[in-house]
Design a protein around this nucleic acid. Structure first.
Lengths: 345, 345
DNA sequence: AGTCCGTGAGTAAGCGCTTTCTCGCCGGGT
DNA sequence: ACCCGGCGAGAAAGCGCTTACTCACGGACT
């Protein structure tokens, strides 16, 4: 086993120069058919695989993109990642996956790692609105696409979902179901998505002409199942339960659902629950969960396409801000019993 | 914005040679303190970031590892990936994520991509027992760690869980609960994990002294929720339901649970269900799911450590085959009612 | 027959970095 | 006062590849 076959070995075997081999690989049209086939045969016989880092060094263009997400354990990001991976691998690009775990320090470390790998673009869901990392990347000539985080910044693209609208959808629904004392479980302060969903929720209350105190906020330290469980326990410890909870994402909602059902609370009769993201598991929960659906896969694909397009023609690239519209999926967890019910006896 | 600051720019600013800058970065001990600090100051002032591909070209050692999984949408792999990412980033390595989607063709493409990126190691859960890709990688000097797939191959490491034992645990439990007509929903043929779990299930039946026809097999085309739903519908279409189902993973089990509960089947009274993987959502399901737990995070960390260790000292590296032992987590979905029950009236 | 130009291959200069070798310089031993 | 050894910095050679640029060769003109 020779450690690595280089373009030079191929050139020797095909009895051409290295330049010609390179041309066969990159601009096949410029090489005469007979020569080209001889080279291809040699590549095949030797099992040659191009050395991408070397190519990148010389040409300056990488075929690698970075993806920094808040939590790979969250199916929302998983589905986004799948979309990214799909679009990237179709374009022959590799995806370097980084998990910031909602930590600014880890995010910073990953961004530096990606910069040192000289990726040509980074798709990132920033922890907080840490514009500092983004600026730093752009200063080094790395294009950035903001994922699931809208921005008006003129020198980068973004792909997001209208979180404010999503929050509004959720609350409008709960109010229509007759809920009167609603708690919103939000994420850590500074988490943009959760804050926007909260704003949307308040919008809905205003539009419905209700008093703002219909909605109370309960912050959770992170958007995962464990924090949802804890939030549930906090609610259960109260003298009176609210009649509805809107969670900033489905993981919180599933945890909360589990805690409350276990304690004998009836969902939705005693407590309506609405989540956010509509992950696959929402439908399979103890009580099928009402949720706000986002086009996760589409978000990933779009973001990857944008960054690849930008890298291929940096000059005429126009930075775009794509905003998808969320959709409410009503399931059992929020269908309140009506005063008069029809149905089987 | 200068496209990229090189080691040369740093050298000029610190008034030393490029060799010295390189020494500061790689063997700081060899440089006099005063010089070193001058260089570090220059690096800081210019915001220099090492060009990893260039370093790799010269030194021949990459700081990148590849991870090829069957399905990023499956929380099992997600948790493994998190372990990998964690261990890798602690060691300053980047992880290139690839999703084979259980397709041999996509796997092949990803393996070639990783080879062209000259990663120093690949962690892979092979589709089928596609040893061909592995041999191909080893021929190119790339170390391979088999993930969730045991092997006796002497020239590579593997990290796996004893799937046969896991299957045995599941079936022993179901038999102890008094189940008599058990269906196992397996994966596509050739999927090693599912086949081993099935073998273990048969072991349990033999050990319990039961007739082999207690267990029937229902293959599913893939290990996801959708296929679980379909399997559930297939069972519901039968004249008589089995009294227990053992699913090759939790996604199948959650799908099946959803389909059966929706159809009014009582779980576990009419039908006991056992899954595999014990993903976080298993506990939060409509009926909390009994499952076989695997140390997912540990698997990922271990695999990444092995490949990084091998790359750092290829000579004295001993290939290891790590096998974890699974553990049964009993929840409500498989607790059969006893003839005599105690409880509230 | 001489000139021109298009085609197709070779030549060579690096991309940014590591690493070996060389060499200047200073302190200590004789 | 001289020599030698060791420390520390510089010079330089590539790693595998891309990409001008160069140049030889014919065929088609004038």
């Amino acid at each position: 086993m020779k450690p690595s076959i280089s373009i030079r070995d191929v050139a020797v075997r095909a009895e051409v120069s290295v330049g010609t081999v390179s041309n066969v690989l990159n601009r096949p049209g410029v090489v005469a058919t007979a020569t080209r086939e001889r080279v291809l045969a040699a590549i095949d016989a030797l099992g040659y695989v191009r050395n991408e880092p070397a190519r990148q060094l010389r040409s300056g263009t990488a075929r690698t993109i970075g993806l920094v997400v808040l939590d790979v354990g969250n199916p929302f990001f998983t589905d986004v990642a799948r979309g990214v991976e799909e679009a990237a691998s179709e374009a022959g690009h590799a995806v370097i996956l980084c998990n910031s775990g909602e930590s600014v320090g880890k995010e910073r470390g990953h961004v530096e790692l990606l910069a040192s790998q000289r990726v040509h673009g980074v798709l990132i869901t920033p922890v907080q609105s840490a514009q500092v990392s983004l600026r730093w990347l752009r200063d080094r000539g790395i294009s950035v696409v903001l994922l699931d985080h809208p921005t008006a910044e003129a020198d980068l693209c973004s792909v997001a979902v209208d979180d404010r609208r999503g929050g509004e959808l959720a609350l409008t629904h709960l109010l229509a179901e007759g809920c009167e004392r609603i708690v919103m479980v939000t994420g850590p302060p500074g988490l943009h998505q959760a804050a926007e969903r909260h704003r949307g929720a308040r919008d809905a209350i205003r539009l419905a002409g209700r008093a703002p105190d219909v909605l109370e906020v309960l912050p959770a330290p992170a958007l995962n199942v464990a924090c949802g469980l804890r939030a549930g326990e906090q609610l259960l410890a109260r003298a009176v339960l609210p009649d509805a909870v809107f969670c900033a994402n489905d993981l919180l909602a599933l945890g909360l659902l589990q805690a409350t059902v276990r304690a004998g609370v009836r969902v939705p009769e005693d407590l309506a629950i609405v989540g956010y993201d509509d992950i696959d598991f929402a439908a399979a929960a103890a009580v099928p969960l009402t949720s706000v659906r986002q086009p996760r896969h589409e978000i990933g694909r779009t973001a990857a396409s944008l960054v690849i397009a930008e890298s291929q023609s940096p000059a005429e690239h126009e930075h775009r801000h794509v905003v998808f519209t969320p959709e409410l999926v009503v399931r059992e967890s929020s269908r309140r019993p009506r005063r008069v019910r029809t149905g089987r006896p």
